[in-house]
């Protein structure tokens, strides 16, 4: 907390922090010494925030996102997700947390290439033991909400990059997560398609989904309301600002 002004660490909201890290660190042993991929990060994120994580390549953004997403465990420090300490849990408990609370969006989409959009979106629900019929209904609903209601039977190869990323977002939404985590979601897209994805994120955020989005692009970070800057594994800047409206930049409301 030493480097941060008091104003950037406001008192907890009524429902408590969604994310609360204390001395969060991830060190990798490397030859003689250690690689401090992430080192002593103290931060809090309230429910409903849209936060960007920025920094040069190798600064620890993805490591931070993976820890927040319960894909990884810290080597030091604590992490509370919605009040629950999840710093030291067995792998299957972490998997359950990911399935219940977190939705992932990746730079390279990570869709099952031979399966259609519906199957891709319904897939996470399988691991929640949701019956087939309800899985289908929910997947259709999720695809409608990202504007792909007409393309539920298209396979990834029949969809554009932006459409594939929307399928991935629908997949992240299908389980009804509290937190959407995106690692360079626009990295593989042209700028206009990237803008559309950010407009979608903003709309979802306005409807209540908390978002943490890793990017190295300041234009993308401008759509969030807050940016965490990383350098050499340390969080060195935390700024809040009024976000740019992506839909307005597109010239049309999101459709």
């Amino acid at each position: 907390m030493d480097a941060l002004p008091e104003t950037l660490a406001p008192s907890p909201p009524a429902g408590g922090w969604l994310i609360e890290t204390r001395d969060l660190s991830r060190h990798y042993p490397s030859g003689e010494g250690v690689v401090k991929a992430l080192d002593g990060v103290d931060t809090t994120i309230a429910p409903g925030e849209f936060v960007a994580a920025m920094g040069p390549s190798g600064s620890g953004k993805s490591t931070f996102l993976n820890l927040i997403g319960c894909l990884d465990q810290p080597t030091r420090g604590t992490y509370r997700l919605a009040g629950e300490d999840v710093s030291r849990l067995p792998p299957d408990r972490l998997a359950e947390l990911r399935g219940r609370k977190i939705g992932f969006v990746f730079q390279s989409f990570h869709l099952l290439p031979r399966s259609d959009a519906l199957t891709n979106v319904a897939m996470p629900l399988m691991y929640r033991g949701v019956p087939r019929r309800i899985r289908r209904d929910r997947a259709v609903m999720a695809l409608e909400r990202v504007g792909l209601g007409q393309r539920i039977h298209h396979t990834p190869s029949q969809l554009s990059g932006g459409q594939q990323q929307r399928v991935a977002i629908a997949r992240a939404l299908a389980t009804g997560p509290e937190l959407l985590l995106a690692d360079e979601p626009t990295g593989a897209l042209d700028s206009r398609t990237g803008l559309e994805i950010m407009a979608l994120f903003q709309a979802l955020n306005r409807a209540g989904v908390s978002i943490l989005c890793v990017t190295h692009d300041a234009d993308v970070a401008a759509f969030a309301g807050r940016t965490l800057r990383f350098r050499d594994g340390k969080l060195f800047e935390d700024t809040r600002y009024p976000p740019v409206d992506a839909a307005a930049m597109l010239g049309v409301p999101f459709a």
Partner: peptide, 22 residues
């Protein structure tokens, strides 16, 4: 609008994991 980018409601608490049939 009609196609609203809204989150889906949370699922009811997890019943069980992947079934054998699935």
């Amino acid at each position: 609008t009609e196609a609203l980018p809204q989150p889906l409601p949370p699922l009811p608490p997890a019943r069980s994991g992947l079934s054998l049939g699935e």
